[in-house]
Design a protein around this nucleic acid. Structure first.
Lengths: 196, 196
DNA sequence: GACAATCTCCCTACTGGAAGGTAGATACGT
DNA sequence: ACGTATCTACCTTCCAGTAGGGAGATTGTC
């Protein structure tokens, strides 16, 4: 009553936060039980194994991202603006510490140690992100809103890599602003209004 | 006799490989004991705690990198070539699977979950790498071997982020070549011989 | 040179706690 | 009565770390 989220959703949200902090092996069912007010055994009712939990989490994460990106595409027309909004979104998340790292970037780094079912979902997220960014790059090049120096798909993967690498640096240095500092020239370079 | 490496070195080398695979929480003393032919308890003789082991490992890792970079500076004069050699080094490591990820990048992603002594060493590695790349960028700009569009320090951090992000993508996709594909345009952009 | 103390490195055996997961019962809404 | 959600209690395995001892090299002392 009054509770907007189901227990299952609360568990997923909590696990997401814990993974952002320390990765797959950095949290346990006991950790979740301590945050969400539920017993360890009850979590197994919702997600029989840890693999199930994280697989579900990553699938949901991708679906949410797909929906967000669809809305973004409707509200922001200019491809360059889309990239800026995307980068700005992460800059805010990192700076207010609400979501200081991408769950899939975290898990991707652990790929060799992940259960195959999870690894495959992480890969699917990367592919989705790459495909979406490629479409943004293509449209930007077509409309003259972006100045690309390589194939759209390559620019997309390079942009994605910059975002992930910048997250990592912000975390390593312990200074969130670094994310924005690194991304600024990356965006600037893609802008057609800046003479090169 | 006949053994070139000490047990202590073997333990460190093994731990390095294991961290590259699954991070700090992705390996145990038992895992090391299985590879290096030694008992679990004997590892504690060399490294009393896991934190000691990893801190030593990261410190050594940075020292090795400092030495390698010093030699590189003597053998390769042109700053643009230096960046190419650096990127190429990682491309080879990733493609032949010998060292498919940077230990410090791996640990940096887990920063919030690391012991402070380890986190501080990881930070030191990032700072060393950034400082070195900044000096390369500065010299390149001065000598006309690199065309920068931002401050040398910003270009250095952006380059570092591209390398780390590209490692992550190569791992997520499971296709090592992606690393080179992402880094090619990043390097090209810094080359003064290419009209922009 | 001989003896003993010390140090280094590795061992077996163990501890307490945390891990993922299971069994089975209870409460409750339909 | 049935399904869902939760509980207590428990299991097995693994974890980091400790206690204590043995073999062999090194060192200090006479």
């Amino acid at each position: 009553m009054g509770n907007l989220l189901t227990k299952s959703d609360e568990i997923l949200a909590c696990a997401r936060t814990l993974i952002m902090n320390g990765g797959y092996n950095g949290f346990s069912y006991a950790d979740i039980a301590n945050v969400v007010k539920i017993r360890k055994a009850s979590i197994h009712h919702h997600f029989p194994t840890k693999t199930d939990l994280v697989r579900t989490l990553v699938t949901r994460y991708r679906e949410d991202a797909e929906a967000t990106v669809a809305v973004l595409g409707e509200n922001v027309q200019d491809p360059f603006e889309v990239l800026k909004v995307y980068a700005g979104h992460w800059a805010s998340c990192i700076e207010d510490a609400s979501r200081p790292f991408c769950v899939c970037a975290m898990l991707a780094s652990e790929t060799p140690a992940l259960a195959p079912e999870v690894a495959v979902e992480v890969k699917a997220f990367f592919r989705f992100l790459s495909t979406w960014l490629t479409s943004v790059m293509e449209r930007g090049a077509r409309e003259g809103s972006l100045s690309l120096s390589s194939e759209p798909a390559v620019e997309a993967d390079a942009f994605m890599a910059s975002v992930h690498g910048a997250m990592l640096s912000a975390r390593a240095y312990g200074t969130p602003e670094v994310f924005g500092t690194i991304l600024a020239p990356t965006l600037q370079r893609l802008s057609p209004t800046v003479a090169q």
